[in-house]
Design a binder for these strands. Structure first.
Length: 471
RNA sequence: CGCGGGAUAGAGCAGCCUGGUAGCUCGUUUGGCUCAUAACCAAAAGGUCGUUGGUUCAAAUCCAACUCCCGCAACCA
């Protein structure tokens, strides 16, 4: 039995929860449930990232105070997490007073690695923001929104010196002391690391007012990523409390797009604090809609709430944990979702429960207890975070049971008066189903519990409504 | 020459590292069964493995070139 700390990326609250956030939560939750089933003690962090200009300006646009707007959106994520039945233990908001204060403590500790310098860039007065060189080139030096030429502007920033950390980070990635999954992302990050310049970690207050003030410099506010990444340890109480019981994190789950911040910026901060790096950083792919990237402009964004309402939470978890590959981008369409629900959840599993329960009732089979489940193949996959493959593997057990019933034909045994034989066969089949339900538990907790309550009972009775009713 | 991923049956994918009868799921067709949610089981049809060349007794698998798709390129899960 060991202590396990699991982290999820904290979403930026300038919008509604979408499918991608759900992936973080589902993967982390699956892992948390799995580790608990192995007897480990799990601490599981979630939270919301609430600082930054976008939140500030959207709040103003909506005529709300920034605090109220952030609180309102943070609540949406809280509700979302509850709807997904995520078994977290710790929740944090980056606007929490403790978090803000702790970030400032962290900053002070990092000071030996921080220096101030001027940043030159193109700036649009109308947008009140810097633009990248690429944007500048694309727009021919003129802001398309304001029809005014970009200005060259210089501002003061604080920087974190990457040269203090680069060699250490490279060594820890290469040796897998901080294991990046999948493997090809590790290679990507190693290359990226070499090209990473010193990291700008503050903005002048006039540019960014909604954030954590830099201690000792009223004119500067922390760059949001410094504030956001720190949440993984401030939620544990760092630096007020000794966090060595839980840190380093066993696993951090992030989307592929923010992997760089978790494998370069975050390690730099941790090394600056003399803390260990997370043991594993798992980067999942994106959910595509009909083979395309989801985007507001194309209008193909799939609302997770609508998906939840379609067939309920278990079907939601089922699709995104099994048919969305753990590491690669995968496709969601309503058609595929419905197919998976009808053919797999309803026909394979739901129907299996129904037919087996009926056979048990007719043959008066009862008094079955939970079998011991040890499955090396399954554990190997779970330990490698190959969740979609482990789920496939567990599902194979379910499909095999349908075949086994047809081979054993217990209803024929009963007809021939071989009652004892029929009961034996059925007990074995039920045992198989209970084992399968145990493997499915991290993915489909509610279904797994239902199956166990149906078959581990004084009297086995088929559920009055099927587990996965068809429309 | 920015970096990376991919191209295998109608669809989605595995196999490639460690060459040797091309496999899985869904769909289609046929048959079986009747315990079950018109559910389940079995069988069949369907692929010159992106193109061209090379290595080899043998290439989806190794090498080279090419074509086409798709990500990423600093705050977008």
């Amino acid at each position: 039995m060991s202590k396990v700390y699991i982290c999820t990326a904290i979403p930026y609250v300038n919008g509604n929860p979408h499918i991608g956030h759900a992936m973080d939560y589902l993967l982390a939750d699956t892992y948390a449930r799995y580790r608990r089933s192995q007897g480990d003690e799990v601490r599981f962090q979630v939270g919301t990232d609430e600082h930054g200009n976008k939140v500030y300006s959207t709040a103003q646009k909506n005529g709300l105070s920034v605090e109220a707007y952030a609180a309102q959106n943070s609540q949406k994520f809280q509700d979302f997490i509850k709807k997904l039945d995520i078994t977290y233990t710790d929740a944090i908001r980056t606007t929490d007073a403790d978090h803000v204060r702790r970030c400032q403590e962290i900053w002070k500790q990092l000071e030996p690695h921080i220096y101030a310098a001027n940043y030159d860039g193109w700036y649009c007065e109308g947008c009140e923001s810097f633009v990248t060189q690429k944007e500048y080139d694309e727009n021919g030096g003129i802001c398309p929104d304001h029809q005014k030429p970009y200005q060259k502007l210089t501002e003061k920033n604080y920087y974190l010196r990457m040269d203090d950390f680069r060699d250490q980070i490279r060594a820890k990635i290469e040796s897998d002391e901080m294991l990046i999954l999948p493997e090809f992302r590790k290679q990507e990050m190693l290359r990226l690391l070499e090209d990473t310049p010193d990291i700008s970690i503050s903005r002048p207050r006039k540019q960014l007012s909604w954030g954590v003030p830099v201690p000792g410099d009223d004119e500067q506010v922390m760059y949001v990523w410094v504030d956001a990444l720190s949440n993984y340890i401030t939620v544990l109480g760092y630096p007020d409390q000794d966090i060595s019981e839980w840190w380093p994190a066993s696993a951090q789950f992030v989307g592929k797009d923010i992997l760089r911040f978790h494998t370069i910026t975050w390690p730099a901060i941790l090394l600056g604090l003399d803390l260990k790096l997370p043991q594993k950083v798992i980067s999942h792919g994106h959910v595509l809609a009909g083979g395309q990237k989801m985007s507001k402009s194309i209008g193909n964004v799939v609302d997770p709430m609508a998906v939840l309402e379609r067939h309920g939470l278990e079907a939601f978890r089922y699709y995104f944990l099994r048919h969305i590959d753990t590491f690669a981008d995968s496709d969601f369409t309503w058609e595929k979702f419905d197919e998976a629900y009808n053919n797999e959840l309803a026909n394979d599993l739901g129907n299996l429960v129904q037919r087996l329960a009926t056979l048990c009732r007719k043959n008066e089979v009862h008094g079955i207890s939970m079998p011991e489940v040890v499955d090396e193949e399954y554990r190997k996959l779970m330990d490698r975070y190959e969740f979609s493959k482990a789920f496939d593997y567990a599902w194979g057990k379910v499909q095999q049971l349908n075949k086994d019933i047809d081979i054993a034909k217990p209803w024929e045994l009963a007809k021939q008066g071989k009652v004892e034989e029929a009961r034996n066969v059925l007990s074995q089949l039920v045992g198989g189903l209970l084992k399968a339900s145990e493997l499915l538990e991290p993915f489909l907790p509610e279904t797994s519990a239902k199956i166990q309550s149906i078959f581990i009972a004084d009297e086995i009775v088929p559920p009055s409504t099927p587990l996965f009713p068809k429309a």
